[in-house]
Design a protein around this nucleic acid. Structure first.
Lengths: 109, 109
DNA sequence: TTCAGCTATTCGGTGTTGCTATGTACCAGT
DNA sequence: ACTGGTACATAGCAACACCGAATAGCTGAA
């Protein structure tokens, strides 16, 4: 969708991925494919992998290497307790933002 | 609110300021004060001024210098036609994001 | 057998953005 | 003179998403 989306994804993409992982474990390639499917057509593969490395280093997810039938081994990520707490914080921050913006939008119309 | 908010504001803060300006003209100091009042307690003054310079250079706003009784002259910004079009785009992008996230949130609960 | 194509991950370099810290300047009241 | 509120500007920094390219395993067609 362009530059606006790129900038808006900063900060939220992390939350999106954590939210996905809160439902089920997943690996990078899979997450990227799912996001593209959901309309995030221009999300770069490299972006997701970098993000996954980041949240792993922060201790928000656990990782398990699982062999694949169709290619190199997958790195399967799952949200741990710390990750869930962080995701909670994310939702709070997100809620705050959406409330302010919703208010501004109503005023503007 | 912390680091999460800082990252989330990237991309949205611009939209917030444009949305404010769509309702009425305003100057930097005023906008900063208003944002703090609305709960964006940690938004830095410099951030707003830099943002205003940016959107001016992109031709989204018109500027008028107005003398103040209480200090140096104010730079009063008002949204022009191009700015309104850009704000429309912003709302579309924002809507898309909120819909996806709302969906993810429901699935997670 | 080789080569294209899908699966799957990694990494270096770039541009944009918000924050920190600091500086400038104007004015009123003490 | 000095403090404090008003008002704007800017240099340096960190974080993040994007781009492009590389690596590597597997399968099926030529």
């Amino acid at each position: 969708m362009g530059k606006q989306m790129t900038e808006m994804l900063k900060g939220t993409l992390e939350g999106i991925v954590l939210a996905i992982l809160s439902g089920r474990s997943a690996y990078g390639y899979e997450i990227t494919a799912w996001l593209r499917d959901q309309g995030f057509s221009d999300i770069a593969e490299g972006t997701i992998y970098a993000l996954l490395v980041r949240i792993e280093q922060r201790g928000l997810v656990d990782v398990e290497k699982v062999p694949s039938e169709k290619g190199p081994p997958r790195k399967v990520y799952s949200l741990n307790a710390q990750g869930r707490a962080y995701l909670e914080e994310f939702w709070k921050t997100w809620s705050f933002l959406t409330e302010r913006l919703e208010q501004l939008r109503e005023e503007g119309s």
